[in-house]
Write a protein that binds this DNA or RNA. Sequence first.
DNA 1: CATCATGTTATAAT
DNA 2: CATTATAACATGAT
Length: 266
Amino acid sequence: MPELAEVEFYRKIWSPALGKKLVRVHVHPHARVFRGEPVAAFTTALEGCIYRASQTHGKQMLFQFSRSIWLGGHLGMSGEMKLGPPDYTPAKHDHLVLYTRQHALILTDPRMFGRWRIHEGKTPPPWWTELPPQVLDAAFTTERLTSALTRHARVPLKALLLDQAWFPGIGNWMADEVLWRLQWPPTRLPGSLRRPAIAKLHAALQSICQSALEIIGTDWSDPPAETWLITHRWRDGGNCPRCQTALQRAELRGRTCCWCPRCQRG
DNA sequence: CATCATGTTATAAT
DNA sequence: CATTATAACATGAT
C-alpha cells in the first residue's frame, strides 16, 4: 500500500506514545517480516525502552528508542501502523505490538512483504545511513538523475522510476503521476532524454513528492481530482482528468501501469 | 472460482 | 561484469 507520502502518514501514527515507556512487547513468533532475525531479539531490546523519535527515508522508516535501540524497516505492499488501547489483543497479522501504559503501538502486515529489523548502537544502523539520496534532498541533483537515466538507458522510464536505489519513495502510483503530469508515455526510454527533458523530470519528481507529502502525508486527504491522476487510476474505467479520454491500463515489468493514451504520446 | 493488488529480491538471461 | 527480465513471496478484496 504505502509509498513516500503514505509512509510519512504511518510514521506519525505512533507519535502519541513519544516519551512513553514500553512496558510490554508482543512479537508474532513466525512473522516473515523479521526475515530470520530471532524474534526474541526484538522483545529483549525493546522492553523497558522509551520511544524517542521517528523518521522516514523514502519508503523506509526508523523508530528510535532509549538505550540506543533502533527499530527500522518498510511496510511492503500491505503493511500498516496502528494505534490501539493498552489492553489491545493482537490480531492475526499483527507482527509487533509495543505496549505503553496508555497505548498499543501496532505493526501489521497481512502479506508480509515488509521487512523489519532491530539495531543497538549510538548511531542509526548502517543499512539506514547508506540509503541513497531522497528525491527532495539537496543531493538529488540533475547530475544524479542523469546518471540514473544513462545507466539504465533502455528500461522503460516507468520501470526505472520504481527503482528504490535511485528514486527512494517513488512507487507505482507516484511514477504514473509523474509521467502523466509530464505527458510522457511510460515506455519512453531514459536514454533518449536530453538536458531540458531531464530538468523537467527532476522538477516533476520534486513537485509531486512535495505535494504528496503535504496533502497525503499529513492526513491522507485526496489530491485535487482535476489536476492529479491518482484518484482516477486505481480501477479500470477511469478517464483522464485533463482530456477525458479513457485511461489505459497494462502490465509493465510486472506492475500495473496506467496512463492517458491521448495526453501521453510524446 | 479467477483475477488483481500503492513492493522487494533472488535468479536467469542478455 | 553490467544491465534487464521474470518469478516468487502470502493474503485479502472484488
